[in-house]
């Protein structure tokens, strides 16, 4: 038999925090993916909320394009507060 679709699993560990990717599993549909995620990823109070997304619906950036995507950020040091040298007397800034 063919594999069930692959779902990526995201868990919110407690309210106030983001859902975070924890792994993946196969399931017949999204509802079953949530049930199985509950059994494998939250057996020890690791979560209060579960998101599942079918892996084929996720579009990922290509690591070969990392230079073009992410390098421009490294030469823009003026975006960081430490770039600006101000008088020592200045407080609360």
């Amino acid at each position: 038999m063919k594999d069930w679709p692959l779902f990526e699993i995201f868990i919110r560990s407690k309210n106030g925090l983001n859902h975070k990717h924890v792994g993946s599993l196969h399931a017949a549909d999204a509802q079953m993916a949530i049930q199985n995620a509950r059994d494998v990823y939250t057996r020890r109070n690791e979560g209060v909320s579960i998101w599942v997304a079918e892996a084929k619906n996720i579009t990922a950036s290509n690591p070969d394009e990392n230079e073009a995507l992410f390098d421009p950020a490294s030469d823009k040091i003026y975006r960081h507060p430490t770039f600006y040298v101000l008088p020592d007397a200045l407080k609360h800034m």
Binding site: M1, D3, L6, G23, S24, L25, V40, R43
Partner: peptide, 23 residues
């Protein structure tokens, strides 16, 4: 024993990221 089933799943999932199917 239930944990071990879960551990098997984590590891199968990690293997599948390398381009091989569960079946």
């Amino acid at each position: 024993v239930q944990d071990e089933g879960g551990h098997g799943l984590y590891l199968y999932s990690a293997t599948e990221t390398l381009g091989i199917g569960r079946d």
